[in-house]
Design a protein around this nucleic acid. Structure first.
Length: 149
DNA sequence: CGCTTGACTGGTA
DNA sequence: TTACCAGCCAAGC
Protein backbone atom coordinates (compact mmCIF):
# COMPACT_ATOMS: atom_id res chain seq x y z
CA UNK A 1 0.00 0.00 0.00
CA UNK A 2 2.21 2.72 -1.16
CA UNK A 3 2.26 5.05 1.74
CA UNK A 4 2.58 8.55 0.49
CA UNK A 5 5.66 9.97 2.02
CA UNK A 6 4.16 13.40 2.05
CA UNK A 7 7.12 14.61 4.03
CA UNK A 8 5.28 17.60 5.34
CA UNK A 9 7.67 20.24 6.46
CA UNK A 10 6.41 20.06 9.97
CA UNK A 11 8.76 22.60 11.33
CA UNK A 12 6.30 25.22 12.24
CA UNK A 13 4.96 25.15 15.74
CA UNK A 14 1.96 27.03 16.80
CA UNK A 15 3.85 29.49 18.91
CA UNK A 16 1.78 31.32 21.41
CA UNK A 17 -0.55 28.47 22.18
CA UNK A 18 0.50 26.87 25.39
CA UNK A 19 -2.32 24.41 25.43
CA UNK A 20 -1.13 20.82 25.36
CA UNK A 21 2.23 19.61 24.14
CA UNK A 22 3.92 21.98 26.48
CA UNK A 23 6.64 19.55 27.41
CA UNK A 24 7.66 19.15 23.83
CA UNK A 25 7.69 15.38 23.86
CA UNK A 26 7.28 14.50 20.24
CA UNK A 27 7.64 11.14 18.60
CA UNK A 28 8.33 9.98 15.07
CA UNK A 29 4.88 8.52 14.91
CA UNK A 30 3.49 11.94 15.41
CA UNK A 31 5.02 13.15 12.19
CA UNK A 32 3.57 10.17 10.41
CA UNK A 33 0.15 10.94 11.75
CA UNK A 34 0.49 14.53 10.71
CA UNK A 35 1.37 13.33 7.23
CA UNK A 36 -1.83 11.35 6.90
CA UNK A 37 -3.90 14.13 8.28
CA UNK A 38 -6.10 15.78 5.68
CA UNK A 39 -5.58 19.06 7.41
CA UNK A 40 -1.90 18.76 6.81
CA UNK A 41 -1.09 18.83 10.47
CA UNK A 42 -2.97 21.92 11.30
CA UNK A 43 -3.83 20.54 14.68
CA UNK A 44 -1.09 18.83 16.60
CA UNK A 45 -2.72 18.34 19.95
CA UNK A 46 -2.54 14.93 21.54
CA UNK A 47 -6.29 14.64 21.39
CA UNK A 48 -6.55 15.25 17.67
CA UNK A 49 -3.68 12.89 17.16
CA UNK A 50 -5.56 10.16 18.93
CA UNK A 51 -8.58 10.90 16.80
CA UNK A 52 -6.47 10.58 13.68
CA UNK A 53 -5.11 7.21 14.69
CA UNK A 54 -8.62 6.01 15.40
CA UNK A 55 -9.63 7.06 11.90
CA UNK A 56 -6.83 4.95 10.45
CA UNK A 57 -8.39 1.83 11.94
CA UNK A 58 -9.56 -0.28 8.99
CA UNK A 59 -13.19 -1.29 8.88
CA UNK A 60 -13.73 -4.61 10.56
CA UNK A 61 -10.72 -4.18 12.81
CA UNK A 62 -10.24 -2.99 16.37
CA UNK A 63 -7.45 -1.70 18.53
CA UNK A 64 -6.83 -0.81 22.13
CA UNK A 65 -6.22 2.48 23.93
CA UNK A 66 -2.78 1.36 24.97
CA UNK A 67 -1.89 0.45 21.38
CA UNK A 68 -2.76 3.94 20.22
CA UNK A 69 -0.80 5.44 23.07
CA UNK A 70 2.14 3.22 22.22
CA UNK A 71 1.99 4.32 18.59
CA UNK A 72 2.21 7.90 19.76
CA UNK A 73 5.10 7.07 22.04
CA UNK A 74 3.11 7.38 25.23
CA UNK A 75 2.43 3.78 26.09
CA UNK A 76 1.70 4.56 29.68
CA UNK A 77 -0.78 7.23 28.77
CA UNK A 78 -3.56 4.89 27.84
CA UNK A 79 -5.82 6.94 30.07
CA UNK A 80 -5.15 10.01 28.03
CA UNK A 81 -6.24 8.14 24.95
CA UNK A 82 -9.51 7.30 26.60
CA UNK A 83 -9.86 10.86 27.79
CA UNK A 84 -9.14 12.05 24.27
CA UNK A 85 -11.89 9.86 22.94
CA UNK A 86 -14.17 11.67 25.29
CA UNK A 87 -13.67 14.69 23.10
CA UNK A 88 -13.75 12.74 19.86
CA UNK A 89 -17.31 13.76 19.23
CA UNK A 90 -16.08 17.35 19.35
CA UNK A 91 -13.83 16.65 16.41
CA UNK A 92 -14.81 18.14 13.08
CA UNK A 93 -14.47 14.74 11.50
CA UNK A 94 -16.13 11.49 12.53
CA UNK A 95 -14.08 9.20 14.73
CA UNK A 96 -14.82 5.46 14.78
CA UNK A 97 -14.46 5.22 18.52
CA UNK A 98 -16.42 2.01 18.47
CA UNK A 99 -13.33 0.32 17.02
CA UNK A 100 -11.34 1.22 20.09
CA UNK A 101 -11.60 -1.13 23.03
CA UNK A 102 -9.42 -1.98 26.00
CA UNK A 103 -6.65 -4.56 26.00
CA UNK A 104 -9.07 -7.27 26.94
CA UNK A 105 -11.28 -6.50 23.98
CA UNK A 106 -14.04 -5.25 26.24
CA UNK A 107 -16.29 -2.46 25.05
CA UNK A 108 -15.54 -0.34 28.05
CA UNK A 109 -16.39 2.87 26.27
CA UNK A 110 -19.79 1.81 25.07
CA UNK A 111 -21.36 3.68 27.94
CA UNK A 112 -20.26 6.90 26.30
CA UNK A 113 -22.14 6.12 23.12
CA UNK A 114 -25.65 7.19 22.40
CA UNK A 115 -27.22 4.87 22.95
CA UNK A 116 -24.65 2.66 24.71
CA UNK A 117 -25.54 -0.36 22.60
CA UNK A 118 -24.65 1.65 19.51
CA UNK A 119 -21.03 0.66 19.88
CA UNK A 120 -21.73 -3.04 19.70
CA UNK A 121 -24.18 -2.42 16.90
CA UNK A 122 -21.60 -0.62 14.81
CA UNK A 123 -19.04 -3.34 15.41
CA UNK A 124 -21.43 -6.10 14.41
CA UNK A 125 -22.32 -4.05 11.37
CA UNK A 126 -18.70 -4.22 10.29
CA UNK A 127 -18.58 -7.96 10.75
CA UNK A 128 -17.10 -7.91 14.22
CA UNK A 129 -18.85 -10.28 16.58
CA UNK A 130 -19.41 -9.06 20.09
CA UNK A 131 -20.34 -11.39 22.89
CA UNK A 132 -20.97 -10.24 26.41
CA UNK A 133 -19.53 -6.81 25.69
CA UNK A 134 -16.35 -8.43 24.47
CA UNK A 135 -14.96 -8.56 20.93
CA UNK A 136 -14.84 -12.11 19.62
CA UNK A 137 -11.44 -13.08 18.22
CA UNK A 138 -10.17 -9.76 19.46
CA UNK A 139 -6.61 -10.97 19.11
CA UNK A 140 -7.25 -11.82 15.49
CA UNK A 141 -9.02 -8.57 14.69
CA UNK A 142 -6.54 -6.52 16.63
CA UNK A 143 -5.01 -3.75 14.55
CA UNK A 144 -1.75 -2.34 15.80
CA UNK A 145 -1.31 1.31 14.74
CA UNK A 146 2.40 1.32 15.50
CA UNK A 147 2.74 -1.71 13.25
CA UNK A 148 0.54 -0.62 10.40
CA UNK A 149 1.43 3.03 10.36
C1' DC B 1 -4.19 27.26 42.69
C1' DG B 2 -4.91 22.34 44.25
C1' DC B 3 -7.35 17.92 44.63
C1' DT B 4 -10.31 14.36 42.26
C1' DT B 5 -11.76 11.84 38.52
C1' DG B 6 -11.24 9.25 34.26
C1' DA B 7 -13.55 5.28 27.75
C1' DC B 8 -6.34 2.13 30.69
C1' DT B 9 -2.53 -1.08 31.72
C1' DG B 10 0.51 -4.07 33.97
C1' DG B 11 2.35 -5.88 38.11
C1' DT B 12 2.01 -7.59 42.76
C1' DA B 13 -0.42 -9.85 46.76
C1' DT C 1 -7.29 -17.81 40.01
C1' DT C 2 -8.99 -12.91 41.08
C1' DA C 3 -8.40 -8.29 43.50
C1' DC C 4 -6.10 -4.34 44.50
C1' DC C 5 -2.33 -0.78 43.79
C1' DA C 6 0.57 2.42 41.45
C1' DG C 7 1.69 5.10 37.16
C1' DC C 8 0.23 8.27 33.60
C1' DC C 9 -1.49 13.15 31.87
C1' DA C 10 -5.18 16.34 31.31
C1' DA C 11 -9.61 18.59 32.37
C1' DG C 12 -13.15 19.76 35.80
C1' DC C 13 -14.66 21.68 40.23
Amino acid sequence: MATSKGKATAGKKAAGKKSAVSKGRVSSARERLVAVKPSGGKEDSFFDLVHEVARQIPKGRVTSYGAIGAALGTRSSARMVGWAMNTCHLSLQPVPAHRVVNSLGLLTGRHHFNPPEKMQLLLEKEGIKVKDNKVVDFKKLFWDPSQEL
